[in-house]
Design a protein around this nucleic acid. Sequence first.
DNA 1: CTTGGGACCTGGCTGC
DNA 2: TGCAGCCAGGTCCCAA
Length: 287
Amino acid sequence: MPELPEVETIKRELSPWVVRQSFTQVAILDDKVVSDTPVEEFRRRLIGQRIQNMERRGKYLIFKLSNGESLIMHLRMTGTLLLKNPERIDRYIRATFHFSNGIQLLFRDPRRFGKMWLVANAESIVGKLGPEPLSGGFTPDILAQGLSKHCIPIKAALIDQNIVAGIGNMYADEALFAARIHPLRKADSLSSEETRTLYYSIRQVLCSAIDRKGASVDTYFRPDGQLGLAQFDFKVAHRSGQSCSACGTPLQRVLVRNRGSYFCPNCQPYTEVLQFDFPVSYGALWD
DNA sequence: CTTGGGACCTGGCTGC
DNA sequence: TGCAGCCAGGTCCCAA
Protein backbone atom coordinates (compact mmCIF):
# COMPACT_ATOMS: atom_id res chain seq x y z
CA MET A 1 0.00 0.00 0.00
CA PRO A 2 1.36 3.39 -0.83
CA GLU A 3 2.51 5.13 2.34
CA LEU A 4 5.03 7.95 2.62
CA PRO A 5 8.04 6.07 1.15
CA GLU A 6 6.03 4.79 -1.81
CA VAL A 7 4.46 8.18 -2.59
CA GLU A 8 7.87 9.87 -2.21
CA THR A 9 9.38 7.34 -4.64
CA ILE A 10 6.59 7.95 -7.15
CA LYS A 11 7.13 11.71 -6.85
CA ARG A 12 10.88 11.42 -7.41
CA GLU A 13 10.63 9.02 -10.34
CA LEU A 14 7.71 10.73 -12.05
CA SER A 15 8.96 14.33 -11.77
CA PRO A 16 11.54 14.14 -14.58
CA TRP A 17 8.86 12.97 -16.99
CA VAL A 18 6.01 15.36 -16.27
CA VAL A 19 7.32 18.53 -14.62
CA ARG A 20 7.26 21.46 -17.10
CA GLN A 21 4.89 19.48 -19.35
CA SER A 22 1.31 20.47 -20.19
CA PHE A 23 -1.79 18.29 -20.13
CA THR A 24 -2.99 17.70 -23.69
CA GLN A 25 -5.61 15.00 -23.03
CA VAL A 26 -7.34 13.77 -19.90
CA ALA A 27 -9.58 10.70 -19.88
CA ILE A 28 -11.56 9.69 -16.80
CA LEU A 29 -12.57 6.03 -17.13
CA ASP A 30 -14.19 5.81 -13.69
CA ASP A 31 -16.02 8.93 -12.51
CA LYS A 32 -15.55 7.86 -8.90
CA VAL A 33 -11.86 8.82 -8.90
CA VAL A 34 -12.61 12.53 -9.21
CA SER A 35 -13.75 14.15 -5.98
CA ASP A 36 -15.77 17.32 -5.55
CA THR A 37 -15.67 18.37 -9.23
CA PRO A 38 -17.84 17.22 -12.15
CA VAL A 39 -15.69 15.10 -14.47
CA GLU A 40 -16.16 17.34 -17.51
CA GLU A 41 -15.19 20.45 -15.54
CA PHE A 42 -12.19 18.57 -14.13
CA ARG A 43 -10.98 17.74 -17.65
CA ARG A 44 -11.63 21.23 -19.02
CA ARG A 45 -9.77 22.95 -16.17
CA LEU A 46 -6.79 20.57 -16.44
CA ILE A 47 -6.19 20.51 -20.19
CA GLY A 48 -3.64 23.13 -21.21
CA GLN A 49 -2.27 23.53 -17.70
CA ARG A 50 1.46 23.07 -17.22
CA ILE A 51 2.90 21.21 -14.23
CA GLN A 52 5.25 23.59 -12.44
CA ASN A 53 6.31 21.23 -9.71
CA MET A 54 5.48 17.99 -7.90
CA GLU A 55 5.23 17.84 -4.13
CA ARG A 56 4.30 15.28 -1.53
CA ARG A 57 2.43 15.92 1.70
CA GLY A 58 1.86 12.84 3.85
CA LYS A 59 0.48 10.27 1.42
CA TYR A 60 -0.86 12.93 -0.94
CA LEU A 61 0.80 13.70 -4.25
CA ILE A 62 0.43 17.33 -5.35
CA PHE A 63 0.93 18.59 -8.91
CA LYS A 64 1.35 22.39 -8.82
CA LEU A 65 -0.18 23.87 -11.97
CA SER A 66 0.72 26.99 -13.93
CA ASN A 67 -2.59 28.68 -13.09
CA GLY A 68 -1.90 28.33 -9.37
CA GLU A 69 -4.29 25.42 -8.89
CA SER A 70 -3.26 22.02 -7.58
CA LEU A 71 -4.07 18.56 -8.88
CA ILE A 72 -3.96 16.33 -5.82
CA MET A 73 -3.96 12.54 -5.83
CA HIS A 74 -4.32 10.00 -3.05
CA LEU A 75 -3.58 6.39 -3.99
CA ARG A 76 -5.17 4.88 -0.85
CA MET A 77 -4.84 1.09 -0.87
CA THR A 78 -4.10 -0.11 -4.36
CA GLY A 79 -3.60 2.97 -6.50
CA THR A 80 -0.47 3.49 -8.57
CA LEU A 81 0.75 5.84 -11.27
CA LEU A 82 2.35 4.24 -14.31
CA LEU A 83 4.08 5.66 -17.32
CA LYS A 84 2.33 4.11 -20.28
CA ASN A 85 3.38 0.60 -21.12
CA PRO A 86 1.07 -1.36 -23.44
CA GLU A 87 1.47 -4.46 -21.27
CA ARG A 88 0.04 -2.65 -18.29
CA ILE A 89 -3.18 -1.43 -19.82
CA ASP A 90 -5.97 -3.39 -18.19
CA ARG A 91 -9.42 -2.89 -16.76
CA TYR A 92 -8.06 -1.25 -13.62
CA ILE A 93 -6.93 1.93 -15.35
CA ARG A 94 -9.22 4.63 -13.91
CA ALA A 95 -7.77 7.70 -15.66
CA THR A 96 -5.20 8.57 -18.30
CA PHE A 97 -3.24 11.79 -18.83
CA HIS A 98 -1.42 12.77 -22.01
CA PHE A 99 1.35 15.38 -21.91
CA SER A 100 2.92 17.76 -24.39
CA ASN A 101 6.10 15.66 -24.55
CA GLY A 102 4.13 12.59 -25.64
CA ILE A 103 4.27 10.92 -22.23
CA GLN A 104 1.14 9.14 -21.07
CA LEU A 105 0.43 8.64 -17.39
CA LEU A 106 -2.01 5.99 -16.15
CA PHE A 107 -3.86 6.03 -12.83
CA ARG A 108 -4.37 2.35 -12.01
CA ASP A 109 -6.42 1.27 -9.01
CA PRO A 110 -8.03 -2.18 -8.73
CA ARG A 111 -9.89 -1.43 -5.50
CA ARG A 112 -11.18 1.99 -6.54
CA PHE A 113 -10.30 3.75 -3.26
CA GLY A 114 -7.93 6.27 -4.86
CA LYS A 115 -9.06 9.87 -5.29
CA MET A 116 -8.12 13.05 -7.16
CA TRP A 117 -8.98 16.67 -6.46
CA LEU A 118 -8.49 19.82 -8.51
CA VAL A 119 -8.43 22.75 -6.12
CA ALA A 120 -7.35 26.37 -6.01
CA ASN A 121 -5.71 25.89 -2.64
CA ALA A 122 -3.97 22.62 -1.77
CA GLU A 123 -4.36 23.41 1.91
CA SER A 124 -8.09 22.73 1.58
CA ILE A 125 -7.14 19.06 1.20
CA VAL A 126 -3.86 18.65 3.09
CA GLY A 127 -4.12 21.53 5.56
CA LYS A 128 -5.11 19.43 8.54
CA LEU A 129 -2.29 16.90 8.27
CA GLY A 130 0.19 16.58 11.09
CA PRO A 131 3.91 17.29 10.67
CA GLU A 132 6.04 15.69 7.96
CA PRO A 133 8.10 13.05 9.81
CA LEU A 134 11.21 13.62 7.68
CA SER A 135 11.10 17.42 7.82
CA GLY A 136 13.41 19.52 9.96
CA GLY A 137 10.41 20.76 11.91
CA PHE A 138 9.65 17.29 13.23
CA THR A 139 11.48 16.78 16.51
CA PRO A 140 11.21 14.38 19.46
CA ASP A 141 9.40 17.15 21.34
CA ILE A 142 6.86 17.64 18.54
CA LEU A 143 6.18 13.90 18.52
CA ALA A 144 5.88 13.87 22.32
CA GLN A 145 3.41 16.75 22.21
CA GLY A 146 1.31 15.00 19.59
CA LEU A 147 1.22 11.72 21.48
CA SER A 148 0.62 13.23 24.92
CA LYS A 149 -2.81 14.48 23.90
CA HIS A 150 -4.16 11.04 23.04
CA CYS A 151 -5.19 8.17 25.25
CA ILE A 152 -5.34 5.69 22.36
CA PRO A 153 -3.09 2.76 21.39
CA ILE A 154 0.27 4.04 20.11
CA LYS A 155 -0.30 2.07 16.90
CA ALA A 156 -3.55 4.01 16.30
CA ALA A 157 -1.78 7.29 17.06
CA LEU A 158 1.02 6.61 14.55
CA ILE A 159 -1.40 5.99 11.69
CA ASP A 160 -3.50 9.04 12.62
CA GLN A 161 -2.57 11.50 9.85
CA ASN A 162 -3.38 14.46 12.07
CA ILE A 163 -0.66 13.48 14.57
CA VAL A 164 2.08 12.57 12.07
CA ALA A 165 1.54 12.54 8.30
CA GLY A 166 2.43 9.67 6.00
CA ILE A 167 2.70 6.63 8.29
CA GLY A 168 0.35 3.75 7.51
CA ASN A 169 -0.18 0.27 8.81
CA MET A 170 3.08 -1.27 7.55
CA TYR A 171 5.52 1.40 8.68
CA ALA A 172 3.74 1.92 12.00
CA ASP A 173 4.36 -1.76 12.80
CA GLU A 174 7.97 -1.49 11.63
CA ALA A 175 8.67 1.66 13.66
CA LEU A 176 7.13 0.17 16.80
CA PHE A 177 9.22 -2.97 16.42
CA ALA A 178 12.38 -0.93 15.87
CA ALA A 179 11.58 1.03 19.04
CA ARG A 180 10.59 -2.18 20.91
CA ILE A 181 7.21 -0.71 21.88
CA HIS A 182 4.04 -2.80 22.11
CA PRO A 183 1.35 -1.56 19.68
CA LEU A 184 -1.33 -1.41 22.38
CA ARG A 185 0.62 0.86 24.74
CA LYS A 186 -1.33 4.07 25.27
CA ALA A 187 0.14 6.98 23.30
CA ASP A 188 0.19 9.24 26.36
CA SER A 189 1.93 6.61 28.50
CA LEU A 190 5.29 6.60 26.68
CA SER A 191 8.28 7.83 28.64
CA SER A 192 10.34 10.61 27.09
CA GLU A 193 13.07 8.05 26.41
CA GLU A 194 10.61 5.77 24.62
CA THR A 195 9.23 8.67 22.60
CA ARG A 196 12.72 9.67 21.60
CA THR A 197 13.55 6.13 20.50
CA LEU A 198 10.29 5.95 18.58
CA TYR A 199 11.08 9.26 16.88
CA TYR A 200 14.40 7.96 15.55
CA SER A 201 12.81 4.62 14.63
CA ILE A 202 10.14 6.35 12.54
CA ARG A 203 12.74 8.37 10.64
CA GLN A 204 15.06 5.42 10.15
CA VAL A 205 12.29 3.10 8.92
CA LEU A 206 10.92 5.68 6.49
CA CYS A 207 14.35 6.73 5.17
CA SER A 208 15.44 3.13 4.59
CA ALA A 209 12.21 2.38 2.75
CA ILE A 210 12.71 5.41 0.50
CA ASP A 211 16.27 4.22 -0.22
CA ARG A 212 14.74 0.89 -1.26
CA LYS A 213 12.15 2.66 -3.49
CA GLY A 214 9.17 1.63 -1.40
CA ALA A 215 7.61 -1.72 -0.53
CA SER A 216 5.91 -3.75 -3.25
CA VAL A 217 3.21 -5.54 -1.34
CA ASP A 218 -0.21 -5.79 -2.96
CA THR A 219 -0.23 -3.68 -6.13
CA TYR A 220 2.49 -1.08 -5.64
CA PHE A 221 4.70 -0.47 -8.67
CA ARG A 222 7.06 2.37 -9.43
CA PRO A 223 6.05 4.55 -12.40
CA ASP A 224 8.26 2.53 -14.77
CA GLY A 225 6.66 -0.73 -13.59
CA GLN A 226 9.59 -1.87 -11.44
CA LEU A 227 9.04 -3.21 -7.94
CA GLY A 228 10.21 -1.59 -4.73
CA LEU A 229 12.46 -3.58 -2.40
CA ALA A 230 11.58 -2.28 1.08
CA GLN A 231 9.39 -5.32 1.83
CA PHE A 232 12.58 -7.40 2.10
CA ASP A 233 13.64 -5.29 5.09
CA PHE A 234 10.39 -5.79 6.99
CA LYS A 235 10.85 -7.28 10.43
CA VAL A 236 7.18 -7.69 11.35
CA ALA A 237 4.86 -6.16 8.74
CA HIS A 238 3.22 -8.73 6.46
CA ARG A 239 5.12 -11.51 8.25
CA SER A 240 2.13 -13.39 9.58
CA GLY A 241 3.05 -16.74 11.09
CA GLN A 242 6.81 -16.13 10.94
CA SER A 243 9.36 -15.82 13.69
CA CYS A 244 11.03 -12.68 14.99
CA SER A 245 14.31 -12.06 13.19
CA ALA A 246 15.85 -10.78 16.42
CA CYS A 247 14.86 -13.49 18.93
CA GLY A 248 13.02 -16.25 17.06
CA THR A 249 9.76 -15.84 18.98
CA PRO A 250 6.69 -16.35 16.78
CA LEU A 251 5.29 -12.99 15.75
CA GLN A 252 1.81 -12.19 16.98
CA ARG A 253 -1.10 -10.37 15.38
CA VAL A 254 -3.48 -8.15 17.27
CA LEU A 255 -6.29 -5.95 16.01
CA VAL A 256 -5.82 -2.25 16.70
CA ARG A 257 -8.69 -0.10 15.44
CA ASN A 258 -9.67 -2.98 13.16
CA ARG A 259 -6.23 -3.01 11.56
CA GLY A 260 -4.02 -6.08 11.72
CA SER A 261 -0.91 -5.26 13.74
CA TYR A 262 2.15 -7.49 13.87
CA PHE A 263 4.64 -7.42 16.70
CA CYS A 264 7.08 -9.60 18.63
CA PRO A 265 5.71 -10.39 22.09
CA ASN A 266 9.26 -10.89 23.40
CA CYS A 267 10.95 -7.82 21.90
CA GLN A 268 7.88 -5.61 22.42
CA PRO A 269 6.49 -6.65 25.83
CA TYR A 270 3.43 -4.85 27.15
CA THR A 271 4.92 -2.82 29.96
CA GLU A 272 2.33 -0.14 30.71
CA VAL A 273 3.76 2.57 32.91
CA LEU A 274 2.52 1.82 36.40
CA GLN A 275 2.11 5.36 37.63
CA PHE A 276 -1.43 5.52 36.26
CA ASP A 277 -2.56 2.42 38.11
CA PHE A 278 -1.13 3.09 41.53
CA PRO A 279 -1.30 5.93 44.05
CA VAL A 280 1.42 8.52 43.63
CA SER A 281 3.16 7.39 46.80
CA TYR A 282 3.60 3.90 45.35
CA GLY A 283 4.44 5.23 41.92
CA ALA A 284 7.43 6.96 43.48
CA LEU A 285 8.94 3.53 44.19
CA TRP A 286 9.54 3.05 40.51
CA ASP A 287 11.21 6.39 39.85
C1' DC B 1 -14.64 17.34 22.55
C1' DT B 2 -12.62 12.28 22.23
C1' DT B 3 -12.55 7.55 20.82
C1' DG B 4 -14.01 3.53 18.30
C1' DG B 5 -16.24 0.99 14.74
C1' DG B 6 -18.33 0.37 10.22
C1' DA B 7 -18.51 1.56 5.21
C1' DC B 8 -16.35 1.85 1.04
C1' DC B 9 -14.13 -1.62 -2.65
C1' DT B 10 -12.60 -5.90 -5.00
C1' DG B 11 -8.85 -9.51 -5.74
C1' DG B 12 -7.22 -13.31 -3.54
C1' DC B 13 -7.37 -16.75 -0.28
C1' DT B 14 -9.63 -20.43 2.74
C1' DG B 15 -12.55 -24.10 3.47
C1' DC B 16 -16.44 -26.88 2.53
C1' DT C 1 -13.80 -27.83 -9.34
C1' DG C 2 -17.07 -24.31 -7.61
C1' DC C 3 -18.34 -20.99 -4.75
C1' DA C 4 -19.57 -18.55 -0.48
C1' DG C 5 -17.41 -15.91 2.84
C1' DC C 6 -13.81 -13.44 4.73
C1' DC C 7 -9.67 -10.49 4.75
C1' DA C 8 -6.68 -6.55 3.41
C1' DG C 9 -6.52 -1.15 4.89
C1' DG C 10 -6.71 4.80 4.25
C1' DT C 11 -10.00 7.78 5.12
C1' DC C 12 -14.61 9.39 5.98
C1' DC C 13 -18.66 9.32 8.66
C1' DC C 14 -21.39 8.43 12.49
C1' DA C 15 -22.42 6.99 17.24
C1' DA C 16 -21.48 6.82 22.11
